[in-house]
């Protein structure tokens, strides 16, 4: 069959004529079309300059599962990274929070330690006060020789327990019942820091802070002497020197009949005294009671025989 076809073609080519022309044009057209297609594909990047395809469908098909697996792994790793970043942020937040708590704890401890130190300091002042009161009671002769110094020193121990000494400038005075004037109290002792005029002041029993404490037998605190709701002797008020005053009756326990005087502490600032200081001052009033009592009784004996 093939041989028959080839013989026919041979005959046609040898004989010349239209077939030969047709065949040349056909071959030229096919070659031209092939060139154009090649150039277009080359331009599009579908083949290289040797005409080889740049896409290898067989190879791509083989790599597809591996690629998909890798993509899944990448996605998983990105998710894990996001989770780890979230955990890291949480940890950082916790660390910051813990640091803040440690700082707060340290501050609280320091405040507690400061208060503890203040309490132990007060204990020491109480101990020395008790010791000196006992010495004065044990040695009356020495007490009467140095009475004013001893009281000044005892009241200074009380002042030592007050916080913010420089701002408050606390001054202490003790007044007792006036031997002659029924409406007034009289100076008995004072701490350092007072002028000599402290001895001259005789608080009214009705109309002064000390008088109020004396009358009622109860602690009377005036946080601001300028505040008219409080009972205070405003004729002698001197806001230049102090703005608050605390008056504590000297009595044995809660029995008002045992009162013998009033211990007053002034403060330069408004609301100078906190609860703890008021309690300490009350403690000192009790500590000083025996000595003041002894002194008053001695005076009465010497006056009335």
């Amino acid at each position: 069959m093939f041989e028959d076809i080839m013989k026919l073609v041979e005959k046609l080519l040898i004989s010349g004529g239209w077939f030969s022309e047709f065949l040349r044009f056909l071959i030229a057209g096919v070659l031209l079309a092939s060139c154009i297609i090649y150039l277009v594909r080359l331009w599009k990047g579908q083949v290289d300059w040797l005409g080889r395809s740049t896409e290898d469908p067989l190879q791509l098909t083989g790599l597809q599962p591996a690629m998909e697996s890798l993509e899944r792994q990448v996605e998983q790793l990105q998710q894990e990274k996001a989770q780890l970043e979230e955990k890291l942020q949480e940890m950082q937040r916790l660390v910051t929070e813990k640091d803040g708590m440690i700082e707060e704890l340290t501050q609280l401890y320091e405040e507690l330690d400061e208060n503890y130190e203040d309490e132990t300091h007060t204990m020491v002042q109480v101990m020395y006060t008790a010791e000196e009161v006992a010495s004065a009671l044990a040695s009356e002769e020495n007490f009467y020789l140095n009475r004013d110094d001893i009281f000044t020193n005892l009241l200074d121990y009380l002042v030592n327990t007050i916080r913010g000494y420089r701002e408050k400038n606390p001054r202490v005075a003790i007044h007792i019942e006036h031997p002659e004037k029924k409406d007034r109290l009289i100076h008995f002792a004072h701490s350092s820091g007072h002028s000599h005029r402290v001895r001259e002041y005789e608080p009214l029993i009705d109309g002064s802070a000390a008088g109020r404490a004396w009358r009622t037998g109860e602690i009377y605190y005036v946080p601001d002497i300028e505040d008219e709701q409080y009972e205070y002797d405003r004729k002698v008020a001197s806001k230049k020197y102090y703005r608050s005053i605390l008056c504590v009756p000297l009595k044995a326990g809660n029995d008002i009949s045992t009162r013998i005087g009033v211990l007053s502490v002034t403060g330069k600032t408004v609301g100078a005294y906190e609860k703890i200081e008021i309690e300490r001052i009350t403690l000192f009033a009790s500590l000083l009671y025996p000595l003041v009592y002894l002194d008053i009784k001695k005076r009465e004996v010497s006056m009335h025989g």
Binding site: H121, Q125, M127
Partner: peptide, 11 residues
């Protein structure tokens, strides 16, 4: 200076 450690050892 007043304390010299008195009442203070526990603190």
């Amino acid at each position: 200076r007043m304390k010299k450690g008195l009442f203070d050892h526990e603190r």
